[in-house]
């Protein structure tokens, strides 16, 4: 038995930029979710989320001691803050795009802090 939540139910994210490169820090709100996030929030899935921005490279760094991950996406900021014509040249709003990702939790997993349950499978 699993149930589906969104990543936002169990993790926090913060985006930052350097040039045309975006990083998104992903922090498990409850460190016990680290393994679940490690298994499900893969480089491939993150690349898929940002496919419309055509990342040339997506790298995930795991930080088990912090129950956190750092995602680095290259060439996704339309040239970066000094070149982009978009409203968010820094890409700072993109952390919440990552947090939309659906996550499967075991049904007997502790309920996420403040989390809302979307459906039961």
């Amino acid at each position: 038995m699993t149930r589906t939540v969104t990543l936002r139910d169990i993790a926090n994210a913060r985006a930052g930029d350097k040039g045309n490169r975006l990083n998104i820090a992903l922090v498990c709100r409850d460190p016990s979710h680290f393994a679940i996030v490690a298994a499900q929030v893969t480089e491939a899935r993150v690349a898929e989320i940002f496919a419309s921005r055509e990342p040339s490279r997506v790298v995930r760094y795991a930080l088990p001691r912090l129950a956190a991950f750092n995602f680095v996406l290259d060439d996704v900021l339309e040239g970066g803050v000094n070149a982009s014509l978009g409203l968010d040249g820094h890409g700072k709003s993109l952390s919440f795009l990552l947090l939309d990702l659906p996550i499967q939790l075991e049904a007997d997993e502790p309920r996420p802090t403040h989390g809302s349950q979307h459906q039961t499978a």
Binding site: N12, R14, G16, D17, K18, R21, N23, A25, V27, R29, Y61, L63, R65, L66, A67, A68, N70, V72
Partner: peptide, 30 residues
Amino acid sequence: QTVVEQILYEIHDPAAYLAPDVVLDLTEVT
């Protein structure tokens, strides 16, 4: 939560944050 978000803010490789005086490795930070 607030501290870990900032630890990784604008970081690329957490094992090699380049500064003029030292290369900072965050992987063992608690």
